[in-house]
């Protein structure tokens, strides 16, 4: 999910670095449990932050299972329904693992689940690359306010918010530290 949030120092921290790490570990275990040993699994992160989270979850699953997990990235920019509402956006890399997604159990990973529109776009983008056996969704934060009939299968943290609040996910890979903050929009 793309966020154009203004940087703020007064945002309240709701998840710190160890909270995030624990949440991702739990997600990894849940995925292994519910997929009966993570067979036939492909983890697809939605850039930018979802792709980094996908890497971390895949690493944790590989640690639990003792074997590597197929991992990729899926850019949804061109499939968004609000493309015409903002200036043209830069594209992010899409990486489909060499075994493809045909017949695989694909788990989409994103940082924040909000309206559900990003995930709808992701489902469209995914179908261009093949027909997975099933698609599931893992998110670090579910903040509610869905505008489409979409739900997450694995949630790091449910965070009830108001529409006016802004959730910001910071990750070491991009922001220098791991942290989820919530703040009132100005």
């Amino acid at each position: 999910m793309t966020h154009d949030f203004e940087r703020s120092i007064d945002g309240r921290v709701v998840l710190d670095s160890s909270d995030i790490s624990r949440a991702l570990t739990r997600l990894a275990h849940e995925i292994v449990e519910r997929t009966h040993g993570a067979q036939n699994l492909t983890i697809m992160g939605i850039p930018t932050r979802g792709a980094a989270l996908a890497q971390r979850i895949a690493a944790k699953i590989a640690e639990i299972q003792g074997s590597p997990v197929a991992i990729g990235a899926l850019d949804v920019t061109m499939y968004r329904d609000d493309l015409r509402m903002r200036p043209a956006r830069a594209l992010q890399p899409t990486k489909i693992p060499s075994e493809g997604i045909e017949g695989r159990l694909v788990i989409l990973v994103d940082d924040v689940l909000f309206s559900g529109r990003t995930i709808r776009a992701a489902l469209d983008a995914l179908s261009e690359h093949g027909r997975p056996e099933a698609v599931q969704l893992a998110v670090l934060v579910d903040r509610g306010h869905r505008e489409l009939p979409i739900r997450a299968d694995y949630v790091g943290k449910n965070l009830p918010t108001s529409q006016q609040e802004v959730i910001q996910v910071k990750l070491v890979e991009y922001d220098g530290s791991d942290e989820v903050t919530i703040e009132r929009a100005k």
Binding site: M78, L91, T94
Partner: peptide, 23 residues
């Protein structure tokens, strides 16, 4: 550079067999 970067992602999509994109 933005045009070249965008072209690179679009070329990758073509290589991955996505014949048509919707934007």
């Amino acid at each position: 550079i933005q045009i070249l970067d965008t072209a690179k992602e679009l070329a990758a999509a073509t290589e991955q067999g996505v014949g048509k994109l919707p934007p």
